[in-house]
């Protein structure tokens, strides 16, 4: 899926994550999280898995995580990607 524009999904409420996806070259993932030390690697892995499943090869993804579970992170990344790709 091609990223045409910048789009966001999610919130800064507890247990949620605000994800912003923008056009880019290759994949860049920037994570800010209240649990970065413990789960930073797992969060990045969830983001990369979701992008791969959606066949996104070029994007800049920024996450401001408030302690979201993997299923929430994946949902917010997918929503932001679909919005940025004009699919939602």
């Amino acid at each position: 899926m091609l990223i045409h524009k910048t789009a966001s999904a999610g919130t800064l409420e507890s247990n949620d994550v605000l994800v912003t996806v923008a056009p880019g070259s290759g994949i860049q993932v920037h994570v800010e999280s209240v649990v970065l030390a413990q789960f930073g690697g797992q969060i990045r892995e969830t983001v990369l898995d979701t992008l791969s499943r959606l066949q996104v090869t070029d994007a800049v993804v920024r996450l401001n995580d408030m302690g979201a579970l993997d299923c929430t992170i994946a949902a917010r990344v997918e929503a932001a990607v679909r919005r940025a790709g004009g699919d939602a």
Binding site: D70, A75, R76, E78
Partner: peptide, 15 residues
Amino acid sequence: KDAARLLVRNALRAM
């Protein structure tokens, strides 16, 4: 609506 649908889908799958 789009974001909620994905969230509920993923929550159901995870739980």
